[in-house]
Design a binder for these strands. Structure first.
Lengths: 337, 337
DNA sequence: ATTGGCACTCGGAGGGTTCGAGTGCCGGTT
DNA sequence: AACCGGCACTCGAACCCTCCGAGTGCCAAT
């Protein structure tokens, strides 16, 4: 009994089950995939695969379906990339490039993923923490008030006011501004702020002002801890064919628990490239029947946030991975310009 | 046959059906609500009510359920207000007052409504168009660039840059700033801008600058036409007892069509006080089985946006109306401070 | 106007049967 | 040793039938 063929059988089972949504038996397997062996032989392979935990039988007299472990093996070893069509790529590009501002870009990315995968899309808004600084603007508002405007390289704008004893003069401001912006190039915000706060060689009166500015910016970073998520395509969950039509509640609940969902995404951000969590691997009860596919996006390879797709464990992994990766790539490009 | 009792019967049918979710027959009606007449009499009333289109029979041998028209009569004439408990009011107040910024206030209001009504909550973000101006800040960025910062009385902050031929001097800026802010008090943005643009008595060089500023602000108002909505509690749709557990798709789809949903809300904004659309009155296919209850919120009675709850036509109207109204009231108060 | 009585309807629950897909295993073949 | 045809067995899904009872409309009586 060849171990290699057994993997072919597993691949065939996954592909068949994903496309038909029916438990697959030995006969159709032998017919549809030219494996060159008889159903009886396949049955033996299936028995072994079941012992090893890759597939399971919903009922005694039914075919087999892949387990989480089976999908995991399929994703890691058995699946091949499924490139998007040129038309699809072009559609992504033009749709994203029509966005008018950051919110719109994120919303459009969400709709794209939902539409391409036929599943739920999740997009994290670019985080201040992980963004680079495009420009920091300092504006004296008079009466000792200073307006700090942070413009990130993802196009996000955030402003904070700072109360000072007295208004600094324009030259000082100009110097602080140019010094900070010089240090900033290509670095992330928290890093910039700590670098700036400890720049010992700077003149003392400037250092004092810079320290105050850094404090305010740090404060903004902390407040932002409740990052925002965008969901799209939740109606897809109720589509015919999603096996949990009748057990939607837990899934919807899990998706509404944005804090928990964010935790999962953050964990997944640690993986390089596209990250896949299958079924119970998500560690979330509500998502036990679903898989999550995510990847990072941002500027020039630096991840500023995640985006991804959530669907039934019985999803088209190669297609979903391709869609998520493509949208992330174009999104990064749009943000970078 | 007393017409008055017939209305009592209708009220009893609505209340019973809402609480039991079962078609209600003449016998239980006579038992549960002390109407003082026999089931046979009630049957006659029911026959009349059915002829008039207020109730209907799902099957020949089943009890009656209210029609959209029946609910409408109930809401308009038969229901009494159901005040929230003191504990509930206090919970709303403290929960809302803990919000840290505008986004958070809106999110919290959504969660409150979803939780109080056990249905889906919709909250429209305060619109720039309908907001008053708390403060307009003008900042010269040097090189002929001017930063315009709009702070609305709902706490929303929006900024736009303006390219000028040359940087205006600080005195001019200060004068423009103070003139605009003087005109602004208590008026809405579009109105302010047109008032300001036509202030003939102002010195010419100031009028030119003001006109440019007004153009940019108008532009911001136009761009905002795609207003944002927040949804919360969609998981409630899948709760046991929501009759459309198995026909969720159209509802979810309708909720995702934010443009369409916004159109409905805008229509409803025309009604004074709490506005109720029942079933097909929404004119949306996907919401044919649901009712929408909304009301405006804002500062001192001026509506800046809507918020509301969406649930099955078979909802607890008095309770939903009370919850929506209460959250709107506290939300207005929080925003006003 | 109201009511008790009565014949009638019909959806839903329960129970039994059939059907067939799919399995595991055994013994034979290459 | 690997593969395969054959066969007995299992069991869920579908179907059919029957029965039950809630609920109705109508009628004659009060």
């Amino acid at each position: 009994m060849s171990a290699e063929r057994r993997l072919d059988v597993l691949r065939a089972i996954v592909e068949d089950y994903v496309s038909t949504r029916e438990p697959v038996g030995s006969r159709v397997l032998a017919e549809r995939h030219h494996l060159g062996v008889s159903p009886a032989t396949i049955r033996n392979d299936m028995a072994t695969l079941e012992e090893e935990g890759y597939i399971a039988q919903p009922h005694t007299s039914a075919g087999r379906i892949p387990t989480d472990k089976g999908y995991r093996l399929f994703v890691d070893e058995l699946s091949t990339v499924k490139p998007l069509s040129v038309a699809q790529r072009r559609a992504i590009e033009t749709f994203l490039s029509r966005a008018v501002d950051l919110d719109d870009v994120v919303a459009r990315a969400g709709r794209l993923i939902a539409q391409l995968t036929g599943q739920v899309a999740v997009v994290q808004y670019p985080s201040l923490r992980r963004s680079g600084l495009r420009h920091l603007e300092l504006v004296s508002l008079g009466g000792g008030r200073l307006l700090i405007v942070i413009i990130t390289d993802t196009g996000r704008v955030e402003q904070r006011a700072l109360e000072l004893g007295e208004s600094p003069d324009e030259e000082t401001l100009a110097e602080v501004r140019s010094r900070i912006n010089q240090v900033a190039v290509g670095r992330q915000l928290p890093e910039i702020m700590s670098a700036v706060a400890t720049a010992e060689s700077w003149p003392p009166q400037i250092r004092a002002l810079v320290a105050e500015i850094a404090t305010v910016v740090e404060q903004a970073l902390v407040e932002e801890s409740a990052e925002r998520l965008l969901l799209a395509g939740t109606a897809n969950l109720a589509r015919a064919g999603m096996r949990f039509e009748h057990a939607l509640r837990p899934v919807l609940e899990a998706l509404e628990e944005q804090v928990v969902l964010l935790g999962l995404l953050t964990e997944m951000a640690a993986d390089a490239g596209v990250s896949v969590r299958i079924g119970r691997e998500t560690q979330l009860e509500g998502l036990a029947q679903t898989s999550v596919v995510t990847t990072g996006y941002g500027n020039e390879g630096a991840t500023v946030a995640l985006l991804g797709s959530i669907g039934p464990t019985r999803m088209d992994y190669p297609g979903t991975i391709a869609a998520v990766r493509a949208v992330a790539a174009y999104l990064s490009r749009v943000l970078g310009s």
